[in-house]
Design a protein around this nucleic acid. Structure first.
Lengths: 134, 134
DNA sequence: CTTGACCTTGACGTCAACGTCAGGTCTTAG
DNA sequence: CTAAGACCTGACGTTGACGTCAAGGTCAAG
């Protein structure tokens, strides 16, 4: 498989794939003329990488986790890293949930403005602020 | 309250507060000599902004949401924005949960490597040296 | 009056995950 | 054979939320 097909099937750009290789996240064989060749499993791997990126795991950290994933056994530090990322993600989920709850509260207030629930109506310190005083 | 105290109490830098003001997210009065002065409510507001940033809401979007929040009533577009961000956050939570599940799976595999659960042991495409591709 | 902590504006630096362009090579359909 | 399209390396551009330095004003204490 050449790079374009992997990119299409994984839903990323070819630039991204070269970037992953540059970061040591994705290996490739080369043809005699220098073009990259990938195994089928590359698609799955790229999707895994994407999932980690979406979770806010930086490439350096993924790089440290991958040997543990690939070989199926890792050093204690690698385990610590996996656990650490896990708890970071859990914390991020909590933050997002809190933000969503705030948003729900604000949506509720915006729908039914009442002085007791809306600080802005009691203390209009932020009422009209200048659009762009420049 | 001057800028340093707000920064301390909200747990951010003074640079961040000036940035928020620059972006139109946070207003301030000025003393005759030009120093910024904030009301008590500023601390709460900064924490709200921080919460939104943590949820991945960009400053431009927060800027569009704030009038709706401050005045307690918004245009239909403002409502759409709030709802839109809400669903975006919900999707982000789902992504994070999926990534965490993946991580749990990988942790389980790394703890108890078995060929049936570990693709790396069946198809060692990423092993130190690659056997012939099929 | 002076010290030192705090404040001001302005402007450039950072970091990550790519986007994008330039200029050349490879492959394949016709 | 040739033209189109996919691929290569290398290098600079982008974006957001600030960090950080420079070169000064301001303010309470001693």
């Amino acid at each position: 498989m050449r790079i374009g097909e992997v990119a299409d099937r994984a839903g990323v750009s070819t630039r991204a794939l070269r970037y992953y290789e540059e970061q040591g996240l994705l290996a490739s064989e080369r043809t005699s003329s220098g073009q990259r060749t990938y195994a089928e499993a590359a698609v799955e791997r790229v999707q895994l990488i994407q999932q980690f990126f979406a979770a806010g795991v930086p490439s350096r950290t993924i790089l440290q986790m991958l040997p543990c994933i690939d070989t199926g056994h890792g050093s204690p530090e690698a385990f610590a890293m996996l656990e650490s990322e896990r708890s970071r993600i859990t914390a991020a989920i909590a933050d997002l949930s809190a933000a969503r709850d705030q948003l729900d509260r604000l949506i509720g207030i915006a729908r039914h403005p009442t002085p007791e629930h809306c600080p802005a109506l009691r203390d209009p310190a932020w009422a009209p602020y200048a659009p762009a005083a420049h």
